[in-house]
C-alpha cells in the first residue's frame, strides 16, 4: 500500500463512528473471521487504525478495497455533508425500462469519455437506490480519493442526489447521467439539506400526505391548561381553526427534516403609509432565510400558534408541495427558477 492509500484508510477509520466500526468491517467482508476476531474494539481509534493497516498489507488490499469500505460507511451514514437534489427531464421512450447493469456500464463509459483518469464505483443499495462514488482526476493528477463525489439515483425515477460536487465537475456528471439514464436534460431541483433521507422523502412524497377533508377535529389531543371554561370555549374555535389550517399546509404527521429555506425576493415595496417607497419603480431586493433543526415543524408551529397568520401563505406551503427549499420571488418574472406570484396586499 502506498502512502496515499494509508492516509485514506487512517482518515476513514477516524470518520467511522466507533460504535458501528465492527459492523461496518463485517459488511465490508475483506477481513477473515480470524482477523475480525483479533480486532479489539475497545482500543482507541489510532491503535485500531494501525492494526487494520497491518491486516490490509497482509491481505494485499489496495485503494480500490479501501474505497469499498468508505462506500459502505457512507451508505450507512448518509446524513453527513450537504446534499443537493437534481431532476432529470424529458425521458426517452426506454427511460422506464432501464436496468442496473445497463445503467452501470453506460454511466462508466460516458463519464470516462468525458474525463480521464476517473475512478468510478457503483453499488446498489437495498432500497433500490444506486450509489455512485466518483474520484476525479485530471490530465496532471491521479483520481483524488480524498475528495470523492457521491451520487444517489433511484432508477426509474427522475431524481438524483449529489454531495461534494464542484462547479467544474457538474457539467461532466450531468452529461453522463442524462445519457445513461436515457433522459434529455437535467435541472437543479432547488432543494438541499444535510439529511439525504429527508430531501429524498420530500421529493418522492414519502411523508404523510395531507387530506384536509378527512381531517378529524384535533382538539381532544391538545393539552391546554384548564382555566375559565368560557374563555377556553371562546378561544377554542380560532385555535382549532389555526391548527387545521396549519395541518392543511404541512400535514399532521412527521415531517421530512429540512434545515433551511431561502427566498430571494425581488418584489415591489407596497405600504399604504409610505408613498415614496410604494411609488418607486424598482423592486425591493432582499434575501430571507429561515433556519431550524426541523424547519417544517417550526413553520407548522408558527401557523398553529398564531405567529403566522392563517391560511398559510403559498410561499411557505410550497416548500412541501413543490419539494423545494430555494425560491426566487418576483412580481411578474419568468425563467426556470422563478416562481411567479403576485403577493397579496
Amino acid at each position: 500500500m502506498d502512502d496515499s492509500t494509508k492516509r485514506l484508510l487512517q482518515r476513514l477509520i477516524r470518520r467511522i463512528p466507533a460504535q458501528t466500526l465492527r459492523t461496518t468491517l463485517e459488511k465490508w467482508g475483506r477481513l477473515t473471521a480470524a482477523q475480525q476476531r483479533s480486532m479489539d474494539f475497545t482500543q482507541p481509534k489510532w491503535a485500531l487504525s494501525e492494526k487494520l493497516l497491518a491486516i490490509c498489507e497482509e491481505n494485499g488490499l489496495t485503494a480500490k478495497h479501501i474505497t469499498e469500505l468508505e462506500m459502505t460507511n457512507v451508505i450507512d451514514n448518509p446524513n453527513q455533508g450537504m446534499w443537493y437534489a437534481f431532476q432529470l427531464m424529458d425521458p426517452e421512450d426506454d427511460a422506464n425500462s432501464i436496468e442496473l447493469t445497463q445503467f452501470k456500464e453506460q454511466f462508466k463509459s460516458h463519464l470516462r469519455e468525458l474525463v480521464r483518469p476517473v475512478s468510478i464505483k457503483i453499488k446498489k443499495h437495498t432500497d433500490e437506490a444506486v450509489w455512485i462514488r466518483i474520484a476525479w482526476g485530471d490530465s496532471f493528477s491521479r483520481p483524488n480519493h480524498l475528495k470523492p463525489t457521491y451520487v444517489v439515483h433511484h432508477l426509474q425515477t427522475p431524481y438524483v442526489f449529489v454531495t461534494s460536487l464542484t462547479s467544474k465537475q457538474k457539467p461532466l456528471l450531468s452529461q453522463a447521467l442524462v445519457l445513461s439514464a436515457r433522459y434529455q436534460a437535467i435541472k437543479d431541483a432547488n432543494l438541499s439539506g444535510r439529511k439525504l433521507t429527508a430531501i429524498r422523502d420530500l421529493l418522492m412524497r414519502k411523508y404523510q400526505q395531507v387530506f384536509p377533508t378527512m381531517y378529524p377535529s384535533p382538539l381532544g389531543e391538545r393539552n391546554q391548561v384548564v382555566s375559565n371554561p368560557h374563555i377556553e370555549k371562546e378561544q377554542a374555535e380560532p385555535a382549532a381553526n389555526r391548527l387545521q389550517m396549519a395541518c392543511e399546509a404541512f400535514g399532521d404527521g412527521t415531517l421530512p427534516q429540512l434545515q433551511t429555506v431561502v427566498y430571494k425576493l425581488e418584489t415591489k415595496f407596497r405600504d399604504h403609509t409610505n408613498k415614496t417607497m410604494t411609488e418607486r419603480e424598482e423592486p425591493f431586493s432582499c434575501v430571507v432565510k429561515f433556519a431550524s433543526t426541523n424547519l417544517l415543524e417550526s413553520l407548522r408551529h408558527c401557523a398553529s400558534s398564531g405567529i403566522a397568520s392563517t391560511p398559510v401563505t403559498p410561499l411557505l406551503s410550497s416548500i412541501l408541495q413543490k419539494g423545494r427549499n430555494y425560491f426566487v420571488i418576483t412580481d411578474n418574472g419568468s425563467g426556470p427558477s422563478t416562481q411567479t406570484r403576485q403577493p397579496q396586499t
Binding site: F284, V288, A291, S292, E297, S298
Partner: peptide, 12 residues
C-alpha cells in the same frame, strides 16, 4: 416556536 426558528433577513 418549537423547534426554535431563526430568520435571517438581508436587505440590499
Amino acid at each position: 416556536v418549537a423547534p426554535p426558528l431563526q430568520v435571517t433577513y438581508t436587505v440590499d
